Simulated assay, not measured.
Amino acid sequence: MKNLILTTAALALTAGMAMADTVRMGTEGAYPPYNFINDAGEVDGFERELGDELCKRAGLECEWVKNDWDSIIPNLVSGNYDTIIAGMSITDERDEVIDFTQNYVPPAASAFAAASDGADLSGGVVAAQTATIQAGYVAESGATLVEFATPEETIAAVRSGEADAVFADKDYLVPIVEESGGELVFVGDDVPLGGGVGMGVRESDGELRGKFDEAITSMKADGTLNEMLKKWFGEGTATYGTDGSVVTN
């Protein structure tokens, strides 16, 4: 799941607001199958379906707001929307600035994809989306990191030869690799990062977080969340038991 590294500017933002009549759901709209913009110009994907159901169960009126990934936390904190529901992994670093609901996607792996299985992951050039802990992981690995604003650009860098490999959420990479006709392959070992994907809210919005936590718990308990996970990520994806524990399929 996508992992934002917080900037100093984000840490400085401290605005908050009471829970509004209409809850604005902030997402990137560029990270399928989590979220994307469909042909009608609307937010679509797993998180759109999930978010609409959570709002229904919580008794909330919700609307969707698109925001670029690299400013998604600062714009939550400054009040441009009320939640982040954008494939965001729960991390201690983020939790210093915002609060999270419980996860609605279990912890999963990040992976490397390359044009050949001989790609040099330790000393070569590896692409990652800017402001992610995938990027941070690469920077500390000894490889040369090249960062891009969007996930699509990281894939393009491998295809053009600008990068030897891309490092990203495996859930994001799987359909791209499968549809590449052999142009891209997975290389190296999967790398577990993050604590699962959750909704981000301002630290002052504990009531709102509580409403969404209750809704997520109910979806885990009745199996609805598992149905959505399998629909968007495949039958082999990790799911939840009725008690919220993670089930590896």
Rank of each mutant, 00 (worst) to 15 (best):
M25D: 14
M25C: 12
M25Q: 15
M25S: 08
M25L: 14
M25N: 12
G26S: 10
G26M: 13
T27I: 05
T27C: 12
T27D: 00
E28G: 14
E28R: 14
G29S: 14
G29F: 14
G29I: 11
A30P: 08
A30C: 09
A30M: 14
A30G: 13
A30Y: 09
Y31H: 07
Y31F: 15
Y31K: 02
Y31Q: 05
Y31S: 12
Y31P: 02
P32L: 14
P32T: 01
P32C: 10
P32W: 09
P32N: 12
P33L: 13
P33S: 14
P33W: 07
Y34T: 09
Y34I: 12
Y34P: 13
Y34S: 11
N35C: 10
N35A: 15
F36G: 00
F36A: 06
F36M: 02
I37T: 06
I37D: 02
I37S: 00
I37C: 03
I37M: 11
N38L: 11
N38E: 00
N38G: 06
N38S: 01
D39L: 09
D39E: 13
D39F: 03
D39G: 10
A40S: 09
A40M: 11
A40K: 13
G41S: 04
G41V: 00
E42W: 02
E42N: 11
E42A: 09
E42Y: 04
V43G: 01
D44H: 05
D44K: 00
D44E: 04
G45M: 05
G45Q: 04
G45I: 02
G45P: 05
F46T: 03
F46P: 14
E47D: 00
E47Y: 08
E47R: 01
E47I: 09
R48P: 07
R48C: 11
R48M: 09
R48F: 09
E49S: 07
E49R: 14
L50F: 09
L50A: 03
L50T: 10
L50Y: 06
G51R: 03
G51S: 03
G51E: 11
D52Y: 12
D52R: 10
D52W: 07
D52T: 01
E53K: 13
L54T: 04
L54F: 06
L54E: 07
C55K: 02
C55F: 01
C55N: 02
K56M: 11
K56G: 03
K56C: 09
K56W: 03
R57I: 05
R57F: 10
R57T: 05
R57P: 06
A58P: 00
